[in-house]
Amino acid sequence: MGAAYVLVAGFGIFRAGLDDPIVDPTLAVMEALTLVSAPLIIALMASIYETASRDRRVFGAMALVFAGVMAGLISAVHFVALTSGRQTDFAVLEWPSTLYAVELLAWDFFLGLSLLCAAPVFVGSGIRALSRWSLAVAGALSLIGVVGPIVGDMALQRIGILGYGIGLPIAALVLSRFFRQDED
């Protein structure tokens, strides 16, 4: 899902350039992909919860709860954007915007917390250490992105994009290796 989103976003940036916003139909595809990714993130955190040892299960539960809050917020924002937002010509993802602030609360804050809580589930060395570190780095970068909207400097928010846009897909790849190894 992350690869599909990166391809579509890259196409949108190629067509729009760096100064203009990405527009429909590319934007609509990006929003639909985001809606689909929300339950996948919950499934990932549920899988992490299931693998947690008894003494680490609380971290898995917290990661799952924060992912659920994130998914709910993201789903609401992108449903509004795909439906009434288009019918009222309402710009959802222009700063400052109430819905954009909710979007950043979801991705930067709640997903960041979810990833940071998931990290301590993985105790040990090897693939477990790599899982722990990839989740922790992605979560920390996502949380740092909160600073941008708080101080009104959206360039700082791009740090958060590194967390969920690059760090999360990397962590998901590492976790897929962990889960495949754990099946053997």
Rank of each mutant, 00 (worst) to 15 (best):
T98F: 15
A136G: 09
L33C: 00
V123F: 03
D55C: 01
V174S: 07
L44E: 04
P21D: 14
L143W: 12
P96L: 08
R86K: 13
R57N: 12
G60I: 06
S131G: 03
A38R: 10
E183Y: 08
A61I: 13
L35C: 12
F79D: 11
A129V: 03
L113C: 11
V36A: 12
A172Q: 03
H78F: 12
G139K: 04
W95Y: 15
E31Y: 08
D108F: 14
G139D: 03
V77G: 09
V36P: 06
G167D: 09
Y100M: 07
G148E: 09
V92P: 11
F122E: 02
C117W: 02
L7V: 03
E103V: 10
S37V: 11
D19M: 07
W133R: 13
P149Q: 07
F110K: 09
H78S: 11
V151T: 05
L104K: 07
L7E: 05
A3E: 00
V151D: 01
A106L: 05
V121F: 00
M30H: 03
C117H: 04
Y164D: 10
P21K: 14
D182Q: 03
L105D: 00
D24N: 13
L33E: 01
V151F: 01
A129N: 06
G85H: 06
P169I: 03
L82V: 14
V77Q: 04
A9M: 08
A138W: 04
L168Y: 15
F179C: 01
L33Q: 02
L104H: 06
I127Y: 05
A81L: 06
L18S: 10
R15E: 13
V102H: 10
Y5M: 09
L113R: 03
V29P: 05
M62S: 02
I127K: 03
G12P: 01
L35I: 11
R15A: 13
M1G: 09
M62N: 00
L18W: 14
A52G: 01
P120A: 08
A28K: 11
R57Y: 05
F79L: 15
A9E: 12
G152F: 02
T83M: 05
G139S: 01
M154Y: 13
S53G: 02
L40D: 01
R177H: 06
L73P: 00
L93M: 12
S125V: 10
I161H: 08
A46K: 08
Y100D: 14
L111G: 07
V174P: 11
Y49M: 10
F59K: 01
G10W: 06
V29L: 09
A155R: 14
